[in-house]
């Protein structure tokens, strides 16, 4: 039984890659390379270190932006969940931010902060923050009232009830928000490199597209996706290790 999920996961990868290979060989579009070519291109780019160097550049605004969004976002969301006043003050801002088309905001960011690191960090934050804030807010608001009542009946102080009941109860939804925020942060980082100034992975994508080296372009794109999935998996592990011992033993 234990092997079955892994077998299914592997099968799902095989199916996707086979479909990719097939579509690439047809070809659906001359600009769409098969999976094998992309893999070879990725190997070359790792070997000549261009991929590694590009990642180093891209991950920087991403890491700063996601870290900022996570800290500030969870704090703001939790505060909004705990206090009506904070809710009235902040919720509309984040709902508008979540609904606003990012591409429309980027020119304003460039005007305000130039084309350097700061604008890119801001882009990541704008992408990642709303979903983190709103998820944290909802998680706190939906903490089971029966558990909170239990905390009161056993004489918990407000601080104890927040720390020992509300936050642990909210952690799954907060982490779901962090995962979505991380994925959105990746999108933000790449968008910033495509729209603000070409650096890192965004530069690789633009450059290889301009010289029609499509396997390398796709290798760059696929690297971002793989990395995003890896980080999200890590976040999952971190959550279970830190807050959800009961899910550890359920495995």
């Amino acid at each position: 039984m234990a092997a079955a999920p892994w077998a299914l996961r592997a099968a799902s990868f095989v199916v996707v890659f086979a479909a990719w290979e097939y579509a690439g060989r047809l070809p659906v579009n001359p600009a769409f390379p098969p999976f094998s070519d992309t893999l070879v291109a990725a190997g070359e780019m790792v070997a000549d270190l261009s991929l590694v160097a590009a990642l180093g550049v891209t991950l920087w605004p991403l890491a700063v932006g996601v870290a900022l969004s996570s800290l500030a976002g969870v704090a703001a969301g939790v505060a909004m969940g705990l206090s009506r006043r904070a809710e009235w003050l902040f919720v509309p801002v984040f709902i508008v931010l979540q609904a606003a088309p990012l591409a429309a905001l980027i020119p304003i960011l460039v005007l305000a902060y130039g084309v350097g690191l700061l604008s890119k960090v801001m882009t990541v934050c704008i992408m990642a923050m709303p979903v983190i804030v709103l998820n944290s807010f909802k998680a706190i608001r939906h903490a089971p009232s029966s558990l909170i009542e239990m905390g009161h009946s056993f004489l918990g102080s407000r601080r104890q009830i927040i720390a020992k009941v509300i936050l642990p109860a909210a952690s799954p939804v907060i982490f779901a928000g962090l995962r979505l925020g991380l994925a959105a942060g990746f999108i933000g980082a790449i968008l910033a490199e495509l729209l603000i100034s070409p650096t890192g992975i965004g530069d690789l994508i633009t450059y290889h597209q301009s010289v029609a080296d499509y396997p390398k372009m796709y290798a760059a794109i696929a690297t971002v996706i793989v990395l995003s999935v890896l980080f999200i998996g890590l976040l999952d592990r971190a959550e279970i290790a830190l807050f959800r011992p009961e899910r550890r033993s359920a495995r």
Binding site: S146, E149, L155, G156, P168, A169, P245, E246
Partner: peptide, 29 residues
């Protein structure tokens, strides 16, 4: 402290062991 409630829906902390759940009233105190 002189009253204790037994809840119809149990109101147990799902992330805590039986031991911590049973000790929770004392933990809060």
């Amino acid at each position: 402290p002189e009253r204790a409630f037994v809840f119809q829906d149990f109101a147990l902390l799902p992330w805590a062991t039986v031991l911590r759940n049973v000790a929770f009233g004392l933990e809060l105190r």
